[in-house]
């Protein structure tokens, strides 16, 4: 574990806590894409299939459980919580994410560490995570004003993978024969997708104005 990876995991955890806070505090999920939340639930379930078979550390197992449980809890809230579900932007959150799931799985069948169920699903989860934010970014563009907590959620969610890229560079330089081509390539694509969001987020922070993504 190095400082970049710890910062990445803590930033990821912070983003999830911010989203939980927003939904709990405002009893509303306006501006949040349920499709992105469902994609993240799929990402975590298929990435951590080894949750019960490979024990790496208490930290690793604990974080996996937190990620799976929180993503499922958020999806449950947005679908079934009597108050929260009413604020879901159903008519704006229309990204046809089936293609993202299909393309990620197809790519995982071609490019994986090993041709086994666990490894193909692991690669699938890596590719799917790279594009999982798309429905959320589209929703932000469509829904005019973005509330602060939702903006912060997306910001930290994008920042966590940038820390992971620093972690991979650090490990590549310090550990012999360390390679993470699948996660690394996918992580760069994932972080690049946030580029314009980061730009408008920085502008809104600099001008102390409301975050606004151009439609």
């Amino acid at each position: 574990m190095n400082v970049f990876r710890l910062a990445g995991d803590m930033t990821h955890l912070l983003s999830i806590l911010l989203l939980l806070l927003k939904i709990y505090a405002t009893k509303s999920c306006s501006g949040v894409s349920r499709k992105t939340q469902e994609l993240y639930a799929i990402v975590f379930i298929f990435r951590y299939l080894d949750l019960f078979t490979d024990f790496i550390s208490v930290y690793n197992t604990f974080m996996k459980v937190v990620f799976i449980a929180s993503s499922l809890a958020i999806v449950w809230c947005m679908r079934f919580h009597p108050v929260v579900r009413r604020s879901y932007d159903r008519e704006l959150d229309t990204f046809r994410y089936f293609f993202l799931v299909g393309a990620s799985f197809a790519l995982a069948l071609i490019w994986h560490e090993k041709f086994s169920v666990q490894e193909v699903f692991w690669a699938f989860s890596i590719y799917l995570e790279a594009v999982a934010i798309l429905p959320q970014l589209v929703l932000l563009q469509r829904s005019g004003n973005v509330d602060n907590l939702t903006g912060q959620y997306v910001f930290f969610l994008g920042a966590y993978r940038a820390f992971y890229i620093l972690n991979w560079i650090y490990r590549y330089l310090t550990e012999p024969r360390f390679t993470r081509w699948i996660a690394g390539t996918s992580g760069v694509v994932q972080t690049a997708l946030y580029a314009d969001f980061f730009y408008y987020y920085f502008i809104s922070w600099k001008n102390n104005s409301k975050l606004k993504l151009p439609a």
Partner: peptide
Amino acid sequence: VELPANHDEL
């Protein structure tokens, strides 16, 4: 035997 692709990261 081929080392399993170690996924020590989250």
